[in-house]
Write a protein that binds this DNA or RNA. Structure first.
Length: 577
DNA sequence: TAAATGATTGTTAAT
DNA sequence: ATTAACAATCATTTA
């Protein structure tokens, strides 16, 4: 039984022309596409200075065509495994990259759990959250040459269309990002305005809990066993935030412990909460996948390469291990963040579907590019109605992913964020990345400056928009106009804005101090009030319809609580919770 | 640098 | 190769 795989040539040196001086990551000669899973910021011009057998999805040297195995070949490789024995290099580098039409264990799962019947499903323990094989230890069965055998489905196996929403949640935990979406049919009553829980009542409650720590307090009084908060989640979130936070603050090196937590929270980089999504009561805490581990190792080596390069000559100057991040002057050499992956788009779902259909029904051999081209044309010709199921599932996955991401971000400690931002700043400085710093979602938001309040004021009032912006619709040009107006204003006219800005600045400072003192104590997630815009001789305050007197400031205790109130956005209110 | 805005544009993930 | 999501960009002032 052969592995079914695709050979994907990884092109190097590809760079699209850019008008603006954006950093073209490909200038750095880094292979693009799926070969790279980590942030572009870790790249360096020394990338090809030495063979890299460690890079995720990198099999063989950069000079060889890459094998992109649907089964994620690298997941078989234990750290340090000598790839030359894998048998993969027996394959001559051939331009005839092919999609093996035959079913094999490898072709079964990567295309989500939707396309094969229960009989051939890999066992949960053999799959990581992305539906990739891994084992907790390096048994012979985990060798690249002897993948875990999974019986092939009969040739007559009937393809189950994606829009077949039959009992998707009955699948096991073999979830890939794609199957995550596949597992989430939309109730017929789907409506964008419905609440998440209304829409996804079929989604196991534990998912909701898992991604929403504070919701644990609201869990049903009599949850079904399957709906109970996973133990790990309870452990994680029942602990008062400030405890973890301060622990992290005082820990010599908070990250390893932190990462362990995240390993539980998001067992794999690919499909966090997969067990929750699957609706299975996986109470056991699973360490994060081999994949993630080897990934981390590769990053370390990456960093080593960079460091050597930077330290000048080719002499291998021995230095302390990377993870020794004790010197605060040295920003982290790599990002420690493992946010949940993107949800599959409608197109991706379709493509996955399409590939599987091909495999099931014909012996045609296609490379990925051809397949994408063909499927792309078909997808384009689909009617809106035909696309709808895909779109809905993508949307469902997106919403879940968004919650995962929020939960993930909220779970980061200020130290984590500081560290990441130090890394990003360093990357920016080195011209390797333009990623802006991430902001602590738990921290109070910076208040608007007086001028920005003025901008808000204009935008909220159609009359002012007309007066000041005229017919200009481009925000950037509006900025210019507004700035001109601002400069032309008298102190008196500005005064209300300045006053309001001053006030909010004070509130912000208080909130910030509070946060920095003990982020996490009850009262976490402080919001400050932005909603009352000052009156001005030229710009009298406008009363906002949804703003009632009773909703006034509740910041009398100085804790900044109670002002989690409506805030203007796009001319209406967006509530912050 | 981030705070708001939203059209535009470049980049990346996913298969 | 294709698609769409994502992220940066722009303009502005203030801290």
């Amino acid at each position: 039984m052969g592995l079914s795989r695709i050979r994907v040539p990884i092109r190097r040196g590809l760079c699209l022309p850019v008008k603006r001086p954006l950093p073209c990551t490909t200038f750095l000669r880094r292979p693009m596409s799926a070969a790279i899973k980590q942030t572009s910021s870790t790249m360096s011009s020394s990338f090809f200075d030495q063979p890299r057998y460690d890079q995720h999805h990198f099999i063989g040297s950069p000079e060889e065509p890459m094998l992109f195995d649907f089964d994620d070949y690298t997941s078989f490789i234990a750290p340090g495994y000598d790839d030359s024995h894998s048998g993969m290099d027996d394959m001559p580098p051939s331009p005839a990259y092919e999609l093996a039409p035959a079913y094999s264990h490898a072709s079964a799962d990567p295309f989500s759990s939707m396309g094969y019947n229960e009989d051939v499903k890999p066992q949960p323990h053999q799959l990581d959250a992305a539906g990739l094989y891994w084992q907790s230890d390096l048994s012979p069965a985990a060798s690249p040459t002897s993948p875990i055998p999974i019986p092939s489905p009969p040739a007559t196996h009937e393809f189950i269309a994606y829009n077949d929403h039959s009992s998707p949640l009955s699948f096991d935990s073999s979830f890939s990002p794609t199957s995550l979406a596949a597992a989430l049919p939309l109730p017929s009553s789907f409506s964008p305005s419905a609440s998440f829980e209304e829409q996804y009542s079929a989604v196991p409650r534990q998912l909701m809990d898992a991604v929403s720590p504070r919701d644990t307090t609201n869990t049903d009084a009599t949850p079904t066993p399957a709906a109970q908060v996973p133990q790990w989640a309870a452990q994680l979130w029942d602990t008062p935030r400030h405890t973890r936070s301060s622990a992290a603050r005082h820990a010599h090196s908070p990250l390893p412990a932190r990462r362990e937590s995240m390993g539980q929270l998001f067992p794999s980089t690919s499909a966090p909460n997969s067990a929750a999504v699957a609706g299975l009561g996986h109470n056991t805490i699973r360490a994060y996948s081999k994949r993630a581990e080897s990934f981390g190792a590769s990053e370390d080596r990456d960093a080593t390469v960079r460091r050597r390069k930077r330290s000048g000559a080719g002499v291998a100057t021995e230095e302390a291990p990377d993870d020794e991040q004790t010197h605060d002057n040295n920003p982290p050499l790599k990002s420690m963040l493992r946010p949940p992956k993107l949800a599959p788009s409608a197109w991706q779902l379709y493509f996955t579907d399409w590939i599987q259909r091909q495999q099931a029904s014909s012996n045609r051999k296609l490379n990925v590019a051809q397949a994408a081209k063909e499927a792309g044309a078909e997808y384009a010709s689909l009617s809106e109605e035909e696309k709808e199921p895909y779109k809905q599932r993508s949307q469902a996955a997106k919403e879940i992913r968004e919650r995962e991401l929020n939960a993930y971000l909220r779970s980061l400690t200020p130290e984590d964020i500081k560290r990441e931002n130090a890394f990003r700043s360093a990357q920016r400085k080195a011209g390797k990345s333009r990623k802006s710093n991430i902001k602590d979602p738990n921290a109070p938001k910076k208040p608007l400056s007086a001028y920005f309040m003025f901008l808000q004021r204009i935008r909220a009032d159609p009359g002012l928009v007309r007066d000041i912006f005229g017919d200009e619709t481009e925000t950037t040009k509006q900025s210019v106009l507004a700035a001109a107006k601002w400069r032309s204003m008298t102190d008196d006219e500005r005064k209300p804005f300045l006053a309001q800005a001053e006030q909010e600045k004070m509130e912000y400072e208080a909130a910030r101090r509070l946060y920095e003192d003990g982020a996490g104590s009850p009262g976490y997630g402080t919001n400050i009030n932005f909603s009352i815009l000052p009156g001005s001789p030229a710009f009298p305050a406008i009363k906002l319809e949804s703003e009632s007197e009773s909703e006034g400031f509740a910041t009398d205790d100085g804790r900044g609580q109670g002002s989690s109130r409506a805030r203007r956005s796009h001319g209406h209110f967006r509530s912050l919770s």
